[in-house]
Write a protein that binds this DNA or RNA. Structure first.
Lengths: 150, 150
DNA sequence: GAAATATTATTTGTATACTAACAAGCAGAG
DNA sequence: CTCTGCTTGTTAGTATACAAATAATATTTC
């Protein structure tokens, strides 16, 4: 049942799953997720981390805008924001001007939180990129950004 | 509230979310998933596609082994296999030798399925890699394989 | 001001993806 | 043969991720 090479015709330029971008992207993402889980503070997941870092950068932000700035769907950012609120990292108050909006902000009691996050983030990226040289790292970042659409 | 640069000390080598591998991997994966959804035949998802291609390659295979060969967890491959069976692409029969096992195989009525899958797979990879040159493509594949752990 | 349009947040449904726990079966050591 | 350890498949729980639909509110256009 190994017959994917019936004859010597040119149609059989065999398709290798292991060489496809999508497959490799998934596997690289899996390894990164595993590293993240080991090194991220407070049990934050990768998306929770991203949303929190971005929110700290912006000070205050509506939920949907935070989603757009972290490449998350409206449904996804809702779940992430809910869990960040449940963990006490994020606060929510109604917007007095636009009554549709809820304004998110980082809970004030976490003062050096941002520094902790940045440091952890750097370690996580470093560990993920450990198999690469400095030049390769720069190249990978550049190419990933290109196929991501920017 | 933009204060992440309190002074001119060297601690403020600012952390850019957009430059982190994990963030870029997620976004690249999102774009690939969108392309996949547009070009994949029979409404197959990326993981369903991978499992099906691999199973066709192997002829027959236990569920767990198929998972290992496609980089999927036992819990993940179960869901994928269930959905492939529900769609009629995959059949399951008990293993007579090892009574724990269930042997999976591609349903026989889909004869040119593999060719269709390979062709679609090539188009999907091509579209995903469209922003890159041929040399860049080769480099990306190589670097992704490296950080994926092989 | 009223109507058409857009935005914000929510909810439902589907599909990965992992952990952890479990039962059943298999294989080797003693 | 029995005990131990391993593999196989299943289930439950948590967390992305997206589509699609909905309700409430803003904005734009006339």
């Amino acid at each position: 049942m190994t017959g994917h090479e019936e004859s010597g015709t040119e149609t059989g330029e065999d398709y290798k799953l292991e060489d496809q971008v999508g497959f490799l992207l998934r596997i690289a993402g899996q390894r990164h997720a595993a590293i993240f889980q080991n090194l991220a503070p407070y049990g934050l997941t990768s998306t929770q981390f991203a949303a929190l870092v971005r929110l700290a950068e912006m000070g205050e932000c509506s939920q949907n805008e935070l989603g757009r700035r972290t490449a998350m769907d409206v449904a996804t950012i809702k779940g992430v924001a809910d869990r960040l609120r449940a963990k006490g990292f994020v606060e929510m108050r109604p917007d007095l001007v636009d009554r549709r909006r809820a304004v998110l902000s980082v809970a004030p009691q976490h003062d050096n939180l941002v520094e902790t996050l940045h440091e952890a983030g750097r370690r996580i990226s470093e560990e993920t990129l450990k198999p690469l040289s400095t030049a390769e790292t720069r190249t990978l970042i550049r190419l990933l950004r290109k196929i991501g659409g920017s």
